[in-house]
Amino acid sequence: MEVKDIIKEENLVYTKSKILTDKVFHYCPGCSHGVVHKLIAEVIEEMDIQEKTIAISPVGCSVLAYNYLAVDWQEAAHGRAPALATAVSRLMPDKYVFAYQGDGDLASIGTAEIIHACNRGENIVIIFINNGIYGMTGGQMAPTTLEGMPTSTSPYGRDVKLAGHPLKITDLIAQLPGTEYVTRQAVHTPAAVRKCKKAILKAFQNVGKKNGTQFIEVVSTCNSGWKLSPVKANEWMVENMFPVYPLGDLKG
């Protein structure tokens, strides 16, 4: 059987979600953002909630996320996405509201907003991309940067005496009674991608039940910031990030 006989419409088993626009991602080759964007798009498509979804993008690499998913978007100030999401969800309680944030946005400048939104149990989904670095501004130290990990503002590696410890904010979030589902996922292998999608689907489905905040951390790579190839970055993540940020459900 020839390839041309296989590549036919009726044999198509995997393609781009219709919720994704035709714009080319501005992300670097191999960036985890693209995979997570895709999974959210697939969940929105499968749940048929495009009309009911309001998305909030952060400041960071994913500031332009609004170019890629065909849902209504609000672009927040740095760290404030949970505050916007709070208001949207309170004012339009039948909507599926999600905030998409990176580690600098969520775990540094926006710590108060995320902790209090989760503590109030806002009926929203938080997607938290943790790659341990500030990607957009060129690879500076993030709150989640690992001990000893070099960045442009910790060029000799993160010194915990100087800069404190990697912030395991998801562990803190899981302690809050306002959260219903708190999980830590990754998208480095096909199996991990499938699991992460299940987690995102569960979170969005939970929104309909209004039992609290849904929080998904995705431990991710920033191969440009880490100065590794995409494949090597995944290996580095498994070896170094996962021991500090172990995958699995923390709650719910």
Binding site: Q74, A76, R80, A83, A85, A112
Partner: peptide, 8 residues
């Protein structure tokens, strides 16, 4: 947070 809720 309050003004950003207003923004949202």
């Amino acid at each position: 947070a309050a003004i950003n809720m207003v923004y949202g």
